[in-house]
Design a protein around this nucleic acid. Structure first.
Length: 463
RNA sequence: GCCCUGAUAGUGUAGUUGGUUUAUCAUACGGCCCUGUCGAGGCCGUGACCCGGGUUCGAAUCCCGGUCAGGGCGCCA
């Protein structure tokens, strides 16, 4: 590793016996500082580890007033520790750096939280809490997992393509986040609930293997395993593909991901068991069963596929049908005649991936025939207004649509299920709270004076 | 929109059937001591009952309303 030597020659996790006698420069935060008469010790911390620095009497004045999390640069010589002082728990435990120069880069106020702090306090000062080893490790795992997904799919011939964040509102589904348009007063963009429509249009364009680490926005309330407001999903789609091929690819991705990034975890059954929706509801009374025999064993990962979902939820009072998955899901070919006779009996090509009782992803084979799509819109009870919203989709499918399908595992939720954290917030660098507030930034917030002037919007406050 | 739980020094907590409470303890913070510590140690000190109303001789404690936080229901194509 080549580091800029103005600030450091080595990291705080790097030095060991081999470096004894070397002159080094370290930069980092004070993890702890102890003074004992005319000598002192500073444990200097960075992302890579902690190195103990010895402060002799000639420098002792220099460290008066320093406290935890002040940022220092320490220059000195690496010394071996006496045998009885070796600390095996840390990577740098057999050496210490005898400081001959201490440069205070920035002072730190006393920290507003410590290791005992409740989650409330920790979220408010997330940037301090993130300094903790466990959280650094969590974000490292997330990085490694996402990088693995990218490399895996790249090798399989996928292109990563980003799709717009400022896009069009869609009826049905979750509540949209709306963004007022300055250039088009009275009109709004919506943030995407998923890149669903764009990825299907990419299939029409001929990009037969696509993926994206996609931000998704849904204005719905939180749960312990549901991040409110926004989340990321591994959105992927393929053309000329069967459901079987989608399941196999996804399965290979997850098995290799866990072998590589989480080798301590054991997958209970390979290939993943496949359970029909009907079977799951009958046997487990849920469509996301937890198949672990021993839930106390945190190392067990029980994956399962749920397939053969009904296309629709039970008929609504107004005679309409709500899609179980979404309105682009393909009915099973054999059930197509049932669309006219008894839509509630139609099964679909929907597939959900469940891990330890958490639904970590869902997908389907999509409709590529505009006539079927229009029939589904009718069954859902779309008005002319609603259909106008999707005019572009119906039109697009008239110009040559390949059969296609995909899946979209949630990144945060998958990691939560694999690692076994209680709350999804632990997996996210800057999570929102239950009410979708960012307590650290204090968002959402009031607009600044003048910000609404060009938007022709007036504010109505909640009572 | 609804239900449940909670809120005490900077942080985490004890105390909550109303009254020796001058509100407990730890940590952090400030001062002093200490030449091999590493969760350092010792002595001293500063610092708090979420907000508004009510009941009462007296409220951190009981009641009402609110705010904030967590979990659940609804919601999540």
């Amino acid at each position: 590793m080549k580091l800029d030597e103005k600030f450091r020659t080595h990291t705080c996790g790097e030095l060991n016996k081999k470096y004894v006698g070397k002159k080094v420069k370290l930069s980092g935060w004070i993890d702890s500082i102890r003074q004992q008469g005319k000598i002192g010790f500073i444990n200097l911390r960075d992302r890579y580890g902690i190195t103990q620095c010895f402060v002799g009497k000639e420098l002792i004045e220099k460290i008066q007033g320093l406290r935890k999390d002040c940022v220092l640069q320490i220059t000195g010589k690496v010394n071996a520790r006496p045998k009885n002082q070796i600390k095996k728990e840390i990577s740098t435990g057999d050496i210490e750096v005898k400081a001959d120069n201490i440069n205070v880069l920035t002072m730190a106020d006393p920290l507003p939280l410590d290791d005992n702090a409740t989650e409330d306090t920790r979220l408010k000062y997330r940037y301090i809490d993130l300094r903790k080893k466990e959280l650094q490790e969590m974000l490292k795992k997330r990085h490694e997992a996402v990088l693995f997904m990218r490399n895996f799919l790249d090798k399989k011939g996928f292109y990563e393509i980003t799709t717009p964040v400022l896009t069009k509102s869609s009826p049905e589904g979750a509540r949209d986040f709306l963004v007022p348009s300055r250039l088009h007063p009275g009109k709004f963009y919506a943030l995407p609930q998923s890149p669903q429509q764009y990825k299907q249009l990419l299939m029409l364009a001929g990009f037969d293997k696509y993926f994206q680490i996609a931000p998704c926005f849904r204005d719905e309330d939180a749960r312990a395993d549901r991040s409110p407001g926004e989340f990321y999903q591994l959105d992927l789609e393929m053309s000329f593909v069967t459901q079987e091929e989608i399941l196999n690819l996804t399965e290979e991705l997850f098995i290799k991901l866990i072998e590589r990034i989480f080798p301590e975890k054991k997958i209970t059954k390979k290939p993943f068991p496949r359970i029909t929706y009907e079977e799951a509801m009958k046997k487990y009374k849920t469509d996301k069963p937890d198949l672990r025999k021993n839930k106390k064993d945190k190392n067990e990962l029980a994956f399962a596929w749920i397939i053969d979902f009904p296309l629709f939820e039970p008929e609504l009072e107004n005679g309409n049908y709500a899609p179980m998955h979404h309105m682009f899901t393909m009915p099973k070919e054999n059930d197509l005649p049932l669309l006219d006779k008894d839509p509630s009996k139609v099964k679909s090509y929907q597939h959900d991936l469940v891990l330890n009782g958490i639904e970590i992803g869902g997908g389907s084979i999509r409709i590529h025939d505009p006539r079927i799509q229009e029939k589904i819109f009718d069954l859902i009870g779309f008005s002319k207004e609603h259909k106008k919203y999707f005019k572009h989709m119906l039109e697009a499918f008239r110009y040559g649509a390949p059969p296609h399908g995909g899946i979209a595992p949630g990144i945060d939720r998958t990691l939560m299920a694999i690692i076994g954290t209680k709350s999804i917030r632990e997996i996210i660098a800057f999570p929102k709270n239950k009410e979708a507030r960012d307590v650290m930034m204090d968002a959402p917030s009031e607009v600044l004076p003048g910000q609404l002037d060009d938007l022709h919007i007036s504010l109505k406050k909640k009572k």
